[in-house]
Structures are given as C-alpha cells and as structure tokens.
C-alpha cells in the first residue's frame, strides 16, 4: 500500500523501456517490407504516364531512392530519431502533421465504439450468466453471433440505409461534421469534447449524430467477444466459494452480484477490452471508408495503394506505439482492480 503509486510508475516506466526493442523491430520490419512490395513511388509520383526516364530518375534522386537500402534505412532511422517521420507525397504535408490531424478522429471513433460495446456487452454477459441455458442466455448468444457474422461495412451500410435513407434520423454519413457547422477551437481533437468545452451544445449534438452510426457499426462487431468473456468469467465467479460466503451471510442480491461476483469477473474483461481496442484501431479502415471518416486508417490505406512509403511507415509506428500504450494502461487498470497483481 505504502508505495502503491510510486511502484506503479516505476513499473510503467520499466514496461515502456522494455517495449523499445519491439518498437525498433517494427520500424525496421515495416521499412524493409515497404521496399519489398511491388510498385515504384517515383513512377507513381512522376508528372504523368508519359514522364521520361530522366524525370523519374530525377524524382528518385530527390527521394533518396537511388541509394542502397541499408543507407536509406540509416537515413530513415536518424530522421525518426529527430522526430521527423518524413513527408507524404500524396498530401504534400509532413506525415507527423497528417497523423496528428487524423488520429483524434480515429481515436474518438474507436473510444466511442468501445464504450458502446462495453455498455452493451457487460450487462448482456451478466444477464446471460445469471440464467445460463434460459431464453435470455440463448438470445444473447444469437445476438452476439449475428454481430460477429456481419462484417462491419455491411452493418455500416445497413445502418445508413435504415437510419439515414429510410428513417432520415441521422445526418448524411460523410465525415465527422457537416460542412456548415463551424468547428470549435481545438483542444483535444475530439470534436464531441471540444464542442462541450466551447459550450456549443448544438455543435456537440451535430458531432454526436455523425459519430453514432459508425461507432455502433464498429461496436456491433466486438460486442460478441466482450459479452462472451463476461458471461464465462461471471459464471466462474458466481460459482466460486466467496460468492457462496456472501450468500451465506445474507448479503443483498445486488451486493452479491455486483460487488462480489462482477468485480471479480470484470478482471479478464479488462484484458480482452485492451486487445479488442488495439484490433479496432487497426481494423476500422472499413468503417472509416464507408462513413468517409477522416481517420488514420483510411489515410494509411490510401498511402499504401499509392506506394507512398512515409505515411505507411508512420502509421505502423503509430499503431505499434498505441498498442504498447494500451497494453500498459490495461496492466495498470488490472493492478488497480486486483490487489494480488501489484504485489509482484
């Protein structure tokens, strides 16, 4: 207890340090992978299909592609060391600036989706575990199966069809905000939070309405693993000796289920939520495409298709770092939730 906070910080620092080699590996691997992939960026970014050999050679020289791969790697690494992720050929902007603009959009979407998923999945799992084998249990299972079966872009399109085309409840699914709304001053990059900070409730509502459909279609896909793990660990928890103890002294139903069973059952859910979050971050390209969401994943996909090295490498590095961070946060949450862990 006495060194709780300090120990946590030291542990977190140690974890971050120990993840540096992995990050370095990711860097080198992506770099080499991009060089191996077919497609020549110089050809792609030359003025047109009729560009002459000299022009292409010129561009190649400009981009430093005429040097050997190890040399390129050294230059690349030293640039990274100086915090320079290179320049995107597509947008003409530094990659760092592009990513910084787009990352909040992706994060906002993913966080919201995860939140929706958790809010739906945990109660569903608990209800299913309280009456295993009942109709409720089977309906939850069916719902989860459906969520997993339908790919996100299909469910996204379905949602658009129903809520935009048929019911007209949601705004047209293009981007984070419609063009006529004035943007709030940027603090966090999360529109829903920035609008609130600016006190602009109308804008906030507009942003939320844009956000809700893509978030729900992403959430639908991950409700299943979260609900299933909640149900399984809740079943274990409910059958455990300490829940029997709680019942033996006549604790109220709520106390037994929430304080005793659920708090223990939530531990594995935290771990799974971390994994799910990391997967969503990388995999939300489909949703971003369907909803024209200006996020990092669609940016990276476009870059990949046009052999634009720097943004892809920057994106992979960003994802790897986020993955490390998410895992760290999960571990810290776990340490707070379970006193047995912080002992080590």
């Amino acid at each position: 207890m006495k060194t709780g906070l300090g120990a946590t910080i030291i542990r977190a620092g140690r974890r971050l340090l120990s993840s540096l080699p992995a990050l370095f590996g990711v860097l080198v691997f992506t770099f080499l992978l991009m060089r191996v992939l077919p497609g020549d960026p110089a050809v792609f970014f030359a003025s047109g299909p009729n560009a002459g050999k000299e022009e292409i050679e010129q561009i190649r020289k400009q981009m430093g592609l005429n040097k050997s791969v190890p040399e390129q790697l050294v230059f690349y690494l030293s640039d990274i060391g100086h915090g320079n992720l290179g320049r995107s050929m597509m947008t003409g902007q530094p990659v760092l600036k592009d990513l910084r603009e787009r990352l909040p959009a992706s994060l906002e979407l993913t966080f919201t989706a995860l939140l929706i998923a958790l809010i739906a999945a945990v109660p569903l799992g608990v209800v299913a575990a309280l009456r295993p084998g009942s109709i409720v249990d089977h309906s939850v299972r069916l719902f989860c199966a459906l969520g997993v079966c339908v790919p996100t872009f299909v469910s996204g399109l379905l949602l658009i069809y129903v809520f935009y085309y048929l019911l007209g409840l949601s705004p047209d699914p293009t981007g984070r905000i419609d063009v006529f709304t004035s943007l709030p001053p940027q603090h966090t990059g999360f529109l829903s939070i920035d609008f609130l900070l600016a006190g602009d409730l109308e804008g906030w509502w507009a942003a939320c309405k844009q956000l809700i459909l893509p978030a729900v279609s992403m959430a639908l896909f991950v409700i299943a693993p979260l609900a299933r793990i909640t149900r399984a660990s809740m079943l274990v928890s409910l059958g455990s000796d300490f829940v029997r103890t709680a019942r033996s002294v006549g604790l109220s139903w709520r106390k037994v289920v929430v304080t005793y069973a659920l708090r223990n059952a939530i531990l594995p859910v935290i771990t799974i939520a971390g994994i799910v979050f990391s997967t969503m971050l990388g995999a939300n390209v489909l949703v971003e495409k369907v909803f024209s969401w200006p996020g990092v994943a669609s940016y990276a996909l476009d870059a990949l298709l046009s052999s634009d090295y720097a943004p892809v490498q920057g994106f992979v590095l960003l994802m790897a770092s986020l993955f490390v961070l998410v895992n760290l946060v999960v571990d810290i949450c776990y340490g707070i939730a379970d006193p047995r862990v912080s002992i080590e």
């Binding site: 455990s240 000796d241 300490f242 029997r244 103890t245 709680a246 033996s248 304080t259 005793y260 708090r263 223990n264 531990l267 939730a337 379970d338 006193p339 047995r340």
Partner: peptide, 14 residues
C-alpha cells in the same frame, strides 16, 4: 456457515 478452504471462501479483491 464456515467453509473448507478459507482462502477461496473470502473475496480475493476486497
């Protein structure tokens, strides 16, 4: 009631 295996009979995270 008092149970066998007291360690398991107590809530580990409370």
């Amino acid at each position: 009631m008092i149970f066998q295996n007291p360690r398991a009979a107590l809530n580990p995270i409370r």
